[in-house]
Structures are given as structure tokens and as C-alpha cells.
């Protein structure tokens, strides 16, 4: 019996990654809040119809990065950026790029469910109405489809005109996802979408995210590493504003390349 080690694993996933089309291509992205640099030379590609998880300790820049993808971060007046983020080949920082147009294609779901103080129906119909859809028949179809895609239709179909605040936290979050889907985005950004939810609601949202990946590209920031491991295809680990490691989720959670990633995911700091 010879003990000459021969690796049996031949990872060909890198080759297949090359062939997939990218929704975002981030190159040399730096971001400052005033004098403080929050993102340092980030380079990464986000692939279409995949779930990309972003993990890292508090203050590592992961939420900032997410909010940069739809330029929401610019709502903070002291922010400056350098580098490029190409969304389907176009630099989102170009002067002629419309922010509204970008945000139509790149929707966002937040940590705490934030339905409007309106009916369930109005919450979902709000976006399409702003985009000029007026006919009730068309709006009805959009509302039904969005609620179905957000896996909440069966729970709300008989009370569409009741106030959304009457829903549970988990239902409100799925309603917010439905509201996001109603304007037919390509990408959904999720900022800790289950951190305010109980375990069953969390599971429902996770299952929903899995279903949504067939039609959408999803980027999800999460503090829950098991959630990142369960739901995502790719995982990025941020630390102190740097992208330390970005790889296939199975690889990152079983055998990360960087010692800092290993220490973080095994709970040895953070």
C-alpha cells in the first residue's frame, strides 16, 4: 500500500463559471464615507441566475457593497466611490445612467419588513402604477403573479384589501419580496432578509429564494453563515472593507483558501 498522496477531487467548476453570463462585473471598486474607506479595491463577478451570499463581521462593508450595486449608498451625502460596476456591460456610475432605471432592474429587500401602510394589494400594485400601468385588469394580474412568485398568494388571496400591517413578520417580508417582483427586476438584492424573522418564516423565505433563482439573480447579505451555506451558489467573505475570498459556496464552507475565512466561518473571531 503506497501512501503517496493523490488528490481524487478534480474541480472543473471554474471552467463552467467562465461560460455563465454575468449581471455585475465589479472592478477596482473603492468607497469612502468621508475620510473612512469602507470598500477597498473590490473585484468580483456576479453570475446570472445564481444566488451570491455576502458574509463577514459587522462593519466589514458587506451592506455598503450591496447598496452600491443599485447606487442606494449614494443617499448618504458624504459617499465617494472610484472604480466601476458594470451592470450587463454598462457602468452604473456613468453620468447618463438613470438611477431610477437601474433600481427598476435591481430591486431590494431590506432587513426589516417595510410594507407601506396600505392594503396588501396596494403594496404590490404601487410600483407598477408608478411605472404607468393603470388598467385594473393588468394590475390584478401583476399582483396575483407577484404574490404567487413570492409564495404568499395562498395565505393572502382572500384578504387582498386588508391592511398589510395585519400580516405576520414573515408574511410581511414575503409581501415586500412580492412588491419587489412586481416591477420585474433582473436582480434582487437582499440585506439580511430573515434576521428579524422566526425560524419557520426564515425557512419559508429561504425556500422562496431558492425558487426565485430560476428567474432572478440574487445577492444576499446575511449574518447567518448556515443560511449562506444552505441557500447560495457563491459566497463572498468581506473583512475590513476587503473581499478576502470569493468562491463556490461548497468550497468556501468546506475548505476555504484563506486562513481568515476559516477563522471567521469556524467562529474564531467576529
Amino acid at each position: 500500500m503506497s501512501l503517496i498522496a493523490k488528490p481524487m477531487v478534480n474541480n472543473t467548476s471554474e471552467q463552467t463559471e467562465q461560460a455563465k453570463s454575468k449581471v455585475f462585473e465589479v472592478s477596482g471598486l473603492n468607497l469612502w464615507y468621508g475620510e473612512d474607506q469602507a470598500l477597498k479595491n473590490i473585484n468580483m463577478k456576479i453570475v446570472e441566475n445564481e444566488i451570491t451570499a455576502i458574509i463577514g463581521p459587522s462593519g466589514c462593508g458587506k451592506s455598503t457593497f450591496l447598496k452600491t450595486l443599485n447606487r442606494m449608498v449614494e443617499m448618504v451625502p458624504i459617499v465617494k466611490t472610484s472604480g466601476t460596476i458594470k451592470y450587463k456591460g454598462e457602468n452604473i456610475f456613468n453620468a447618463k445612467q438613470s438611477v431610477e432605471d437601474l433600481r427598476t432592474h435591481v430591486g431590494m429587500v431590506f432587513q426589516k419588513p417595510n410594507p407601506f401602510p396600505k392594503s396588501i394589494y396596494e403594496n404590490v400594485a404601487y410600483g407598477p402604477k408608478i411605472h404607468g400601468i393603470k388598467k385594473k385588469k393588468d394590475l390584478d394580474l401583476i399582483v396575483e403573479k407577484s404574490l404567487k412568485d413570492a409564495a404568499i398568494w395562498d395565505e393572502v388571496k382572500d384578504r387582498l384589501h386588508e391592511n398589510a400591517y395585519g400580516l405576520s413578520g414573515g408574511q410581511q417580508q414575503r409581501l415586500c419580496i412580492a412588491r419587489c417582483l412586481a416591477i420585474e427586476p433582473d436582480v434582487i438584492l437582499m440585506d439580511e432578509p430573515t434576521s428579524a424573522l422566526d425560524p419557520i418564516s426564515t425557512l419559508k423565505v429561504e425556500e422562496l429564494v431558492q425558487q426565485l433563482r430560476e428567474k432572478y439573480s440574487i445577492v444576499i447579505v446575511t449574518h447567518n453563515m448556515q443560511q449562506a451555506a444552505r441557500v447560495s451558489d457563491q459566497t463572498a467573505f468581506f473583512l475590513n472593507g476587503e473581499l478576502v475570498e470569493f468562491s463556490n459556496t461548497d468550497k468556501l464552507f468546506s475548505n476555504p483558501e484563506d486562513r481568515r475565512t476559516e477563522d471567521y466561518i469556524t467562529g474564531r473571531f467576529g
Binding site: M1, L3, A5, K6, P7, V9, S254, N255
Partner: peptide, 14 residues
């Protein structure tokens, strides 16, 4: 022990 340290499956039975 190889698997533990390297994180890869090794064939040591040749």
C-alpha cells in the same frame, strides 16, 4: 488524517 489536514480525499491504497 490527510483529509482532516488537506480537506481533500486521498487514495492511499495503491
Amino acid at each position: 488524517i490527510f483529509y482532516l489536514v488537506k480537506g481533500e480525499t486521498y487514495n492511499l491504497n495503491d
